[in-house]
Amino acid sequence: MLASMSASTPQLRLFQSTPHPCGYWPLRTARDLVIDPDDPRLARLYPLGLSWGFRRSGNLLYRPQCPQCQACVPVRIDCTRFHPNRNQRRCLKRNADLRWQVLPAVRTDEQLALYQRYLGARHAGGGMDNHNAIDYDRFLLGDWSQTRFMEIRGPDQQGLDALLAVAVTDITDNGLSAVYTYYDPDCQHRSLGTYAILQQLQWARRLQLPHLYLGYWIARHRKMDYKRHFNALEAYDGQQWQPLAANKRAED
Rank of each mutant, 00 (worst) to 15 (best):
233 L>A: 02
69 C>V: 06
173 D>C: 07
157 Q>G: 03
96 A>K: 07
166 V>A: 03
45 L>H: 10
68 Q>T: 05
196 A>R: 02
17 S>I: 01
212 L>R: 02
146 Q>A: 09
225 D>E: 14
51 S>Y: 04
103 L>W: 13
44 R>C: 10
115 Y>E: 06
23 G>F: 01
29 T>L: 15
179 V>D: 10
19 P>E: 03
22 C>H: 00
187 C>D: 00
32 D>Y: 07
4 S>Q: 09
138 R>S: 14
200 Q>K: 12
115 Y>K: 09
5 M>L: 13
164 L>K: 08
72 C>P: 09
112 L>D: 04
78 D>P: 07
203 W>C: 10
219 A>F: 07
87 N>V: 06
116 Q>C: 11
129 D>P: 02
135 D>I: 09
80 T>A: 15
20 H>P: 00
241 W>Y: 05
158 Q>W: 01
19 P>W: 11
227 K>G: 02
19 P>M: 12
250 A>K: 08
105 A>H: 07
66 C>Q: 01
252 D>M: 03
247 N>W: 15
117 R>T: 06
114 L>W: 06
130 N>V: 04
246 A>G: 01
49 G>A: 15
82 F>R: 01
192 L>I: 04
214 L>Q: 04
103 L>I: 05
196 A>C: 06
126 G>S: 14
135 D>E: 07
147 T>E: 05
193 G>T: 03
162 A>W: 08
59 N>E: 10
64 P>K: 02
58 G>W: 11
8 S>E: 11
157 Q>I: 13
249 R>H: 00
62 Y>A: 00
245 A>Y: 02
119 L>T: 04
113 A>Y: 06
139 F>G: 08
81 R>W: 06
134 I>Q: 14
202 Q>T: 14
201 L>G: 10
39 D>F: 09
252 D>T: 02
14 L>F: 01
101 Q>V: 12
118 Y>T: 08
152 I>R: 11
190 R>T: 05
171 I>F: 15
59 N>D: 15
242 Q>A: 13
226 Y>E: 08
228 R>P: 05
102 V>Q: 12
107 R>N: 07
221 H>W: 07
169 T>P: 02
80 T>M: 12
49 G>I: 10
209 L>I: 04
35 I>D: 05
191 S>Y: 06
136 Y>V: 03
127 G>W: 01
60 L>V: 11
250 A>C: 09
136 Y>H: 10
40 P>F: 08
175 G>F: 15
244 L>D: 04
32 D>N: 15
111 Q>V: 10
163 L>F: 13
211 H>Q: 09
148 R>Q: 15
90 R>K: 11
89 R>P: 05
77 I>G: 03
111 Q>R: 14
232 A>H: 10
175 G>Q: 11
48 L>V: 06
230 F>Y: 15
167 A>Y: 10
39 D>M: 05
107 R>Y: 11
195 Y>W: 09
3 A>F: 12
233 L>G: 04
59 N>T: 05
78 D>A: 13
149 F>P: 08
191 S>R: 07
93 K>N: 08
167 A>M: 09
59 N>G: 07
3 A>G: 05
98 L>M: 00
